[in-house]
Amino acid sequence: MLPAPEPCRHESPVQNENGTAVSSLGSPSTTILHPFSPALRLLVIAFLVYLAWLLEIFLLAANPRLLEHPEPAGVALYTIIGCILTGMIFPILCIRKAFISGTVTMFQLGFRTFRRTLLACSVTCTIGIGMMVLFSPFGADRLAFANAFLLLLPTAASSVMVCWVLAGTHLQAFVRSGGALLSITTGVVITSLLFATAALALSPSVREEGTTFWPVCIGLGAALFFFAVRDVYATVIVVTGSGVFFGAGIFDPGYLHGINPQIYASSLLAVIVLLALHFYLSRNYATIMVPAET
Rank of each mutant, 00 (worst) to 15 (best):
A144K: 15
F145Q: 01
A157H: 12
M131N: 06
L143C: 13
L153K: 03
A120N: 10
A157N: 11
N147V: 09
V160E: 05
P154A: 06
L143A: 15
A140L: 10
L153A: 00
S122C: 13
M161K: 02
L152W: 14
R116D: 11
P137H: 01
L143F: 11
G128K: 03
T126L: 10
A157L: 14
F149A: 15
L119G: 04
F149Y: 12
P137E: 00
L151K: 12
D141N: 08
F135P: 00
C163M: 08
M161P: 01
V123C: 09
L152S: 11
C125H: 05
A156P: 11
P154G: 08
L153Q: 00
S158K: 13
M131E: 05
I129M: 04
F149R: 08
F135N: 01
S136N: 15
L151W: 07
F138N: 03
P137G: 02
V162C: 00
T155Y: 08
F145I: 00
P137C: 02
V162Q: 01
R116K: 08
M131Q: 03
L151M: 14
L151P: 08
V160P: 00
A148L: 13
A140Y: 01
I129V: 08
S158N: 05
S158D: 10
M132Q: 10
I127L: 13
S159T: 13
A146R: 13
V133Y: 12
A156K: 15
L153C: 04
T124R: 01
T126K: 01
F149N: 13
T124Q: 05
A144R: 15
F149H: 05
D141S: 05
G130M: 01
